[in-house]
Write a protein that binds this DNA or RNA. Structure first.
Lengths: 226, 226
DNA sequence: ATGATACTCGAACGCCTGTTCTGTGTCAAG
DNA sequence: CTTGACACAGAACAGGCGTTCGAGTATCAT
């Protein structure tokens, strides 16, 4: 029979699968799954194998376990609750620099320090998917998007947008990153600033427009201005 | 034997005791207690009696239960976890209207619909006190504070501010509400807009300035602009 | 080859736990 | 006084669940 080869570095596919299942189960049921439920949904036929992986995940610090207690497991670091999302802060965003986009398997491991927690109840629409990432705004170049220095923008990675959505775009012709409301028009694109007093950027079809993500939320921690 | 008299209105002593125990147990163990554990710590000798009360608490909406599932209960309504704050949205804030301030005992009861949840990890400084309230911005009158129509501002009620703090003030002379950075100067007050391209409001000492609260956070859910 | 290591399976054991049933004492209404 | 709702106890049942054990298989370095 085919055997899975262990990826000596990081988590194997089954580890990841179990981790994901615990998270999604917790979100749906408000409590952790049992060992047998994990086995069923992760195609593991024996409870002892689930237990085997759970032990490893505990040793590697990904989960905590309360032995002997039914469903006594919880994720550590990442999403402790089903009510919150942990969004990785992948870097900064500023006018003169390209946008850091999430590398393929970048969501797997990120330190709790470099992430922000968002209550799912705050999330607009059905963007509750876990493919979100965050960037910290650097500089005052986004003031036309009503976004301050230091603000945190939550993005959903995408290559195309619908009219009226706020997107993060890289204008390679101008060497510029910007956040604007996106409108496709007959002769090109219109990038509308959030500030209604400011004029839009009109782009011809010939000009390059790379959509990197869609803005779903902006968070500003107001400390002191000094 | 002594019997407890049921308080026909509200929760009896045992109901409250069970509720408190579930909360404290959950805090300590990260998972809910079992029926028998509740019985032991609440001086109830029979599991059926615990079940009896749990049923009532479920009917009255204080807890939710997953039948047949071990420790399948959880508190509803109030933030069961210490990881999130529930902030009441007391109303709207706009230029032409006074600021709704929290009435004395207003934090006690508010519906979950009229509140926003904030992860404590997001809270700046030590404003994690629960005396916070939120207002929804109405209109474009706060654009000079880099705040959009529909944004949610989290406020901490206070009557005075230190220099550099963003405050919500009511200028009775002008019949105007505004959000500005606050600076006390020798000849009066300076109210500085967050947008660095805009000019401050200079106030003489004689002009009335009512500070209603201090802004600690701004949240913008970006849906669609259309 | 050979042993070590990693991984998997199936089954059984036994405690944990929610559920249910029977019975008892209290108290207010009829 | 009878009746019934209410609060409670105790015991037993049945299924859920974590744990453990024995055994088998694939990969790989020795």
């Amino acid at each position: 029979m085919m055997m899975m080869v262990r990826k000596s570095k990081g988590l194997g596919e089954r580890h990841q699968r179990i981790l994901d299942f615990i998270a999604s189960y917790q979100r749906e049921h408000k409590h952790p799954p049992s060992i047998r439920e994990i086995g069923e949904h992760c195609d593991i036929s024996s409870t002892s194998v689930v237990n085997y992986y759970l032990d490893q995940l505990e040793k590697s610090g990904h989960i905590e376990r309360d032995r002997k207690i039914s469903r006594g497991m919880r994720l550590t670091g990442n999403t402790p609750l089903g009510d919150m999302l942990r969004v990785p802060v992948l870097g900064v965003i500023q006018a003169g620099e390209p946008i850091p986009v999430p590398s393929n398997a970048d969501f797997a491991s990120f330190t709790p320090e470099d992430s922000v927690e968002i209550a799912t109840s705050l999330m607009p629409g059905k963007e509750k998917g876990k493919e979100l990432f965050a960037l910290q705004v650097q500089g005052d170049s986004m003031i036309d998007a009503m976004i301050n220095d230091g603000d945190i923008v939550i993005l959903k990675p995408t290559q195309d947008a619908r009219n009226g959505e706020m997107v993060a775009v890289w204008l390679s012709d101008r060497n510029e990153t910007t956040l604007k409301y996106y409108y496709k028009e007959k002769d090109g694109y219109r990038l509308q600033p959030a500030n209604p007093t400011m004029k839009p950027i009109m782009l011809k079809k010939t000009e390059a427009l790379e959509i990197k993500g869609k803005v779903v939320m902006v968070i500003r921690k107001v400390e002191r201005y000094n």
